[in-house]
Design a protein around this nucleic acid. Structure first.
Length: 415
DNA sequence: CATAAACCAACACGGTATTA
DNA sequence: TAATACCGTGTTGGTTTATG
């Protein structure tokens, strides 16, 4: 019998031996009146509980016993015994509960191990293990058992990634995928599902993360705080237009705009892209689409060739300051066409802060940020340039006739 | 029948040859 | 060597299909 399907259970021989053993006499009085109850064998005459157990405990649970089991748990009888027992269903349940608990504990250990492995593989600080594990456990408890992302090998890298993103720490997605046991498809499809488990991921403060990147770029190219603040300004002013892409791209876009708008143009867009690890063509397309096409500024040739034009647009939008001394005053008229404005409550921001979705003449919506103090009861946008203090050019948007949004789209002149 | 996985289309992004 | 053009690949987010 021994050595059949249960060969892995090293105690099988013992249990067979036990089953066959003759328990028909009391250890003390040698009476043959032996009663069996669920807990053990009792002598019917003297009431002594016999040392022979109804069930064997193959795994010692007594502290004085040395625990040789690799999994370190107490097993309730052998498989055979559990099946034969009258209360086998109950025992089975207990056993399952027990192994479940063990499984969860094993997951905890291997998750910690895996998180450490990934962090050190990426050269990140191991101080973050605890919060990452917390996040891991939180997500895991949201996942139904049987879901494939519950496995440590898949969930751990995702959690590390999330933690870094949520805490504004740089993380290289490619490296992460390389050292972890998860495919790109799985990683991405899970990222897509994330909003169900970690809603704050989608409302996280991306700006902070991007600003960190901008700071890195500033330091890398010795640009000084002026450059940083200019890029920060670009980020804030154009946020609603440029935000729909990766954080890295937004950071490089902001710095590239500032670099292109500088009259000397010492800092090359190319080198920014190389540093961040994106392609220059990405910035090219971003500026072409997000800036020129969105604002319907005609005449974009290519990234660097159109940098003068970009500078003019930025000055007109009040994103960067005009250099009054050297700069010839802009002559060309830049038209920004906007349709009807609709007021949207922005849940992510302060309670009395509104952004406006403006339908452009080509159907899509453009969001205008940073106009919180306007009287939004008036609509039909009209952009008016104001001469503010210190010769700075500043725009405000006047909203009229909000009650009649069906009127013809207003063509706005930003002059 | 509910949920996860696979599929798909649009478009964002990256690689590279060519050009200035 | 930087800038540009072009095209292949990757990503996204919704829809359909499979599965238990």
């Amino acid at each position: 019998m021994a050595g059949n399907g249960f060969a892995r259970d090293s105690c099988l021989e013992d249990s067979d031996f036990f089953e066959d053993r003759d328990i028909n006499s009391c250890d003390i009085c040698n009476s043959h009146n032996i009663q069996k109850n669920p807990e053990g064998y009792v002598c019917g005459d003297c009431g002594v509980v016999l040392s022979s157990l109804v069930m064997e405990y193959h795994r010692p649970y007594d502290e004085s016993c040395i625990d040789h089991t690799p999994r370190g748990k107490t097993q309730i009888g052998s498989v055979k015994e559990r099946i034969r027992n009258a209360r086998s269903i109950h025992l089975d349940k207990l056993n399952r509960l027990d192994s479940e608990r063990e499984g969860e504990e094993r997951v905890k250990v291997s998750a910690n191990y895996e998180i450490r492995r990934i962090l050190s593989g990426l050269g990140l600080s191991l101080l973050e293990v605890k919060p990452i594990f917390k996040l891991f456990w939180k997500i895991r408890n949201c996942l139904q058992s049987g879901t494939k992302y519950r496995s440590v090998r898949k969930l751990a890298p995702i959690t590390v990634y999330l933690h870094c993103k949520l805490n504004c720490k740089g993380i290289n997605e490619q490296e992460l995928l390389e050292i972890s046991n998860i495919t790109k498809q799985e990683f991405n499809s899970f990222k897509f599902q994330l909003r169900n488990y970690i809603p704050q991921y989608y409302s996280r403060d991306r700006k902070q993360f991007i600003l960190q990147k901008i700071m890195n770029i500033t330091m890398e190219f010795d640009q000084g705080m002026e450059f940083y603040h200019a890029a920060e300004n670009v980020l804030n002013k154009l946020w609603e237009i440029i935000k729909c892409t990766k954080d890295d791209v937004v950071a490089s876009l902001c710095t590239s705009i500032v670099a292109l708008c500088e009259t000397e143009r010492e800092l090359k867009v190319n080198s920014i892209c190389n540093y961040i690890g994106i392609q220059m063509s990405t910035i090219h397309r971003q500026i072409e689409q997000k800036i020129f096409e969105r604002l319907q500024v005609e005449g974009f040739k290519s990234l660097v060739r159109s940098s003068d034009m970009l500078r003019k647009v930025m000055i007109k939008l009040g994103v960067i300051e005009a250099n009054v001394d050297k700069e010839p005053q802009p002559v060309s008229v830049i038209k920004i066409k906007l349709g009807n404005a609709t007021q949207i409550f922005n849940v992510l921001e302060h309670i009395d802060y509104y952004i406006y979705a403006v339908e452009t003449s080509f159907g899509s919506f453009m969001l205008i940020d940073e106009i919180p103090k306007l009287d939004y009861k008036l609509s039909n946008t009209k952009m008016i340039e104001e001469n503010g203090v210190e010769g700075k050019l500043k725009f405000s948007i006047e909203l009229e006739k909000y009650e009649y949004p069906k009127g013809p789209p207003a063509e706005l002149m930003a002059l």
